[in-house]
Amino acid sequence: MLETIWFLLWGLIWGIYFMLDGFDFGLGILLPFVARSDKEKRVIYNAMGPFWDGNEVWLITAGGVTFAAFPTTYAVMFSTLYTPLLMILFALIIRAASFEFRNKIASQSWKSFWDASLFIGSFTPALLFGVAFANIFQGIPFDKNYVFQGNLFTLLNPYGLLGGVLFVALFLVHGSIWLAIKSDGNLHIKAKAAASSIWMFLLVIAVVFLGYSWFATPLYKNYLSNPILFILPLITVLALLATRLFIFQNAFWKAWIASSLTILTAVLFGVVGLFPNMYPSSIDSTLSLTAFNSSSSPLTLKIMLGVVLIMVPIVIVYQTWAYHLFSGKIDEAMLSSKESY
């Protein structure tokens, strides 16, 4: 029971991370395509300015709870995904540096350098997180000594790549909507156009991914034996459709919430399909790590449950307050102030 609760919390925390940092990634990838002038670029930076750091802590929490609640999964997952994981971390480092350093020097080449870093630093994690999760859904080739039998290219198989493209598309839509919320004028129009057109692409990718998953993964097994669970992917689909509707109606906050729900439930769809596996082996299914064979002691699970159930709601309260405080559009006054990116 405790393990099951933790398994769901684990999925939920990863879901919240992708929901929040997802729009940052989307904006970073979008930057070279929608922003022309320095001013437009700075609108994009400042649109995520007060939030990206707090959002990234959800990743640290996701890593931390994996370590605390499922140490064996943490150990095997992180060591077998060594190269992609370090690439993600390096990308996150240059992304953070882009935020903090770009506006410190007036030179054009300096700024272009950091714009490129922001793009790489956003695209790499978006793609590789998708690749990693899709591969986990399929099973990872690790043997009885927990040695990964393959290399980075083993993970870049068609289904894995499709997972990566799906993540990128989800985040691009999510980020475009956020930009529409935070910007005015020409940039706002471009953001809306991007959200609408990428949404079409996302729809296609999502349908293909769901279909491909039927053949490439055992994800649907839990759903077929427990059809009530189909409500989860149903919410994902409805939220995705609602996203389009709200974009069309220029109701961008609603669109953003719908898009958030899409990402959150898409992650949960995969995680619930995975249960009780957390990190299945494609070499021998008896080696697969599950919520039950990789968890911490009941005492640790209980204490950590207490900590998480108290602290996470508090975090959500003050982060919501921070989002509310900076919910306005990025205006001239903000861009001309020294306290901006």
Partner: peptide, 29 residues
């Protein structure tokens, strides 16, 4: 992980969120 991992997770939920959220609020606020 049972012990060491828990402490790191507590650090993230109890302290790091607070620090990272409020530094953003402070700079932009």
């Amino acid at each position: 992980g049972d012990i060491f991992g828990s402490i790191l997770a507590i650090e993230a939920t109890m302290a790091f969120f607070l620090e990272s959220t409020f530094i953003g609020v402070w700079f932009f606020g």
